[in-house]
Design a protein around this nucleic acid. Structure first.
Lengths: 208, 208
DNA sequence: GCATTACGCTACGGCTCGTAGCGAAAGCAC
DNA sequence: GTGCTTTCGCTACGAGCCGTAGCGTAATGC
């Protein structure tokens, strides 16, 4: 979390239960209050912890919310569904399920907005959230190449660019659908999205 | 802006210059301070206006920033570039140019995050920002169908779903690329994106 | 002129912030 | 057990911002 393991072998250890309680209280406060009305004092009361304890562990609201939201992405996994199309739909639906939670909706976008002016915060988000998502894209792509559904890309640099592009397309579309358009990214939508992503617009725009 | 035109035919009229000064000051404050540290008192000082004047016109920080950012989208247009691919690249690059501005980056995502808990705010964003973007997608699609690049879709409901999907894919990808991945959505990226959107992943994943 | 509305200015209570200081609690080494 | 170290809960504090009220003045239409 806060990367505190170097020194301090003696003395009273930090309560792991307090960490869990604080992060859970943060998510609860995000649901009930939203980002802007969330205060650290309120979180401390909800968690049954002194406000000073909170400030000893996190630098501020931004870092706290990033960690609280990051835990929601622990459940991400990519079971092999047999085809590239099915794998993509699986990733989309898992991501959509996380973004369907109100604590993820109000928290995630807010910290991304703050990260536009804070490089350390953006790196924290990248390491604890984005990287986990990207791993799913990499895994799905590797499987598809083994199946022969996608041609191998020997050029490492070009392959990295492609993965980044796909990742931005998948994650961006789900986020935009959920937060801006405010419509659910359900199975029907995921199916249509996968069809366009795989075959393109010109291919079969009619059928669903 | 604040949709104040119904009554009030007499009395001192509201200063249009003050509106412009306030919105410009808001954008400047967004650049220098970011969303979370922006205060309405500071904006009032920058605009050379009393703080009470600000509160008479806008309900709060959210509404003010939406209007300030919305003005950035006035420049959106879609000149006919002769082909669907070129039109898409044009839309992507125009959207990317707006998101390259720091006042758009920190402001837009923040209000979207707030809108997850405020239906009126989301409607305000939809009407003043999203709708303008979507019009470009609709125009590009209509042109492509006239050219024969895309088959016509007689089913109105299915056509609307397709437009929504395309819109979420285009806008979402640019936003994610710019804000989350924190990489520029330049011409090379727009080119690769357009190729995937039109032809799909399986088609030609190698060449750029 | 008169009525009406917008403006600038000042002042205020209320809330949150982030920190300091203190005594008590919970571990480890001996 | 006795000490040493670190964390914890609690209280209190100055600072800053919020959103509003009140008042006198400025700019319109009639």
């Amino acid at each position: 979390m806060q990367s505190r393991t170097p020194a301090s072998r003696t003395g009273r250890p930090r309560s792991a239960a307090a960490d869990a309680a604080i992060l859970a209280a943060t998510r609860q406060a995000l649901v009930e209050l939203g980002w802007s009305k969330l205060t650290l004092g309120d979180v401390a009361v909800r968690a049954g912890v002194a406000k000073t304890t909170l400030y000893r562990r996190w630098a501020g609201k931004n870092e706290l919310v990033v960690d609280a939201v990051a835990e929601l992405f622990d459940e991400l996994s990519l079971p092999d569904r047999g085809s590239l199309a099915a794998d993509i739909e699986g990733v989309v639906l898992q991501f959509a399920a996380i973004l369907a939670r109100p604590e993820a909706r109000s928290g995630l976008m807010a910290v991304v907005a703050e990260a536009t002016r804070d490089d350390l915060l953006r790196e924290r988000i990248r390491a604890s959230i984005v990287e986990r998502q990207k791993r799913l894209v990499l895994a799905g792509r590797a499987r598809a190449q083994e199946r022969g559904e996608l041609p191998p890309q020997p050029d490492a640099e070009a392959a990295a660019r492609t993965v980044d592009l796909i990742f931005d397309m998948v994650a961006g579309a789900v986020v935009h659908r959920t937060l801006v358009s405010a419509e659910p990214a359900d199975e029907e939508w995921a199916h249509g999205f996968t069809r366009v992503l795989l075959s393109g617009l010109a291919a079969a725009p009619g059928a669903v």
